[in-house]
Simulated scan of single mutants.
Amino acid sequence: MGFRVVAECPVTGARAGELTTAHGVVKTPVFMPVGTQATVKAMAPFELKALGAQIILGNTYHLFLRPGEELVERAGGLHRFMGWDRPILTDSGGFQVFSLAELRTLSDEGVVFRSHLDGSRHVMTPERAVRIQERLGSDIAMCFDECVKYPTTYEYSMGAVKRTLAWARRCLAAKTRDDQLLFGIVQGSVFEDQRIACAEALMEMDFPGYSIGGLSVGESHQEMYRILDCLKGVLPKGKPRYLMGVGHPSNLLEGIARGVDMFDCVLPTRNGRNGTVFTSRGRLNVKNLSLAEDFTPLDPDCTCYACRNFSRAYIRHLYKAGEILAMRLCTWHNLHFLISLVEGARRAILEGTFPEYRERFLRTFEG
């Protein structure tokens, strides 16, 4: 298992790579659909394969609460349990615990929290987060970290960085599976010196990959890009870089231009369920009355199943009628859109045309 860069854009530093896992090779850059509870909402595994999904996510927090890692392990691991034979990445649950501020108590030892499902009390430590992910059997696991809200103070963020680093050391010490890659997570909010210090400390621990957490939590796009710019020259070139929780099309290309290899986000599936789709000319709300007699595809430039077979008017009708197919078609389209966008970026990097590819897409999408 390992990672290699096969091409790099001399203008931007965008990379095309190959990440080898126990369940296959992932060609990067890559967008990873989110399957929080061992399913990508509204999509079957064979449909995800048809879309070109190489790797999907599961979430430690949610799977720990329901159905429990013991049951998943007895079922043969997460791959067999959910019928997915390609790579899986699991988030440690740190972000979910962060989002439950009213239901948790944080200390250097770990987090005591109450389930959002039934109010039951639980304790999550770095060691337990690793153990759960090992029992789930994912190909890539995340260290348990502290993700801070935005905005935050310099002092609070520094405390979270120190705790994240201490927890990263404990995660490494707890790791037992040789067939699972464990990534460290760079924290530090929007403070460049903290981000650099955190990255350098994690690099001394020699993780096989590095995640960038704590972004897309309310800061501006420009602040996000500034942090990515400062980390671009710090993180090792020979290891994968994963920007967590980012899925807006513009952010994907700007992240790739700053050397990021991996992305995930619930945005395409959540937006799809709510009737909003990405198109080459920007966002489109399928529920708009103006589409009632629009017999063109969601996106005339798209080749996905929904765009090849159905019109905006038909899909709007499905939403108005409360039909489940509406959500499935829009989710299908959004996932296809982002996966294809990142695949196109990879081809452009290999062909030496990434700056033109990026400029052309952003001009039409944001114009």
Results as ranks from 00 to 15, higher is better:
V26S: 05
L253Y: 00
T269I: 02
H79Q: 03
I55T: 12
V111R: 07
L172Q: 13
E8L: 09
E155V: 10
G344K: 03
K287E: 00
P45Y: 05
T296E: 14
Y319T: 04
F365A: 03
R346E: 08
E343R: 14
E134D: 03
C330K: 06
D229W: 00
F310T: 01
H221E: 15
R273T: 06
V234T: 13
E70N: 11
Y357N: 02
V123W: 08
K27R: 15
Q187V: 09
D261A: 10
L350S: 10
R308W: 00
N334T: 02
G247A: 12
V123S: 09
L318H: 08
T353Y: 09
V123L: 15
L165R: 10
H62N: 05
L362N: 08
H248N: 15
E351H: 13
Y357F: 15
G52N: 11
D145A: 03
Y154A: 14
K287A: 11
R4L: 12
P300S: 02
A345Y: 02
E70A: 14
S189M: 06
L63N: 06
N251Y: 12
R360G: 01
G93D: 03
D108R: 01
L289F: 14
G110E: 00
M203T: 05
S189F: 06
D108Q: 03
G159H: 06
A199K: 07
V260A: 01
Q222I: 14
A173P: 06
S120L: 04
I212E: 07
F31Q: 06
V277H: 10
I339F: 08
S340W: 09
E127D: 13
R316D: 14
P33R: 03
A174F: 06
G137L: 05
R66L: 10
L362A: 02
D261Q: 03
R346Q: 05
P208I: 10
V123I: 15
D229Q: 08
V123C: 04
V6E: 11
C198P: 09
G344S: 10
L267W: 08
F354S: 04
E204V: 09
T28S: 09
D178N: 13
F183T: 05
I227M: 15
Y61E: 00
E73N: 09
T125N: 05
L165Q: 11
G188I: 07
M124L: 15
T39H: 05
T152H: 06
A348N: 13
V234Y: 10
R104Y: 04
G275I: 12
C143F: 13
F354T: 03
C147G: 03
F191H: 14
R328Q: 14
V5H: 04
P126S: 02
G218E: 01
E69T: 04
R316E: 05
G119A: 08
A326C: 07
I56R: 00
G58S: 10
V30Q: 12
M224S: 08
T105W: 13
V97H: 06
R241H: 09
R273N: 04
Q187W: 12
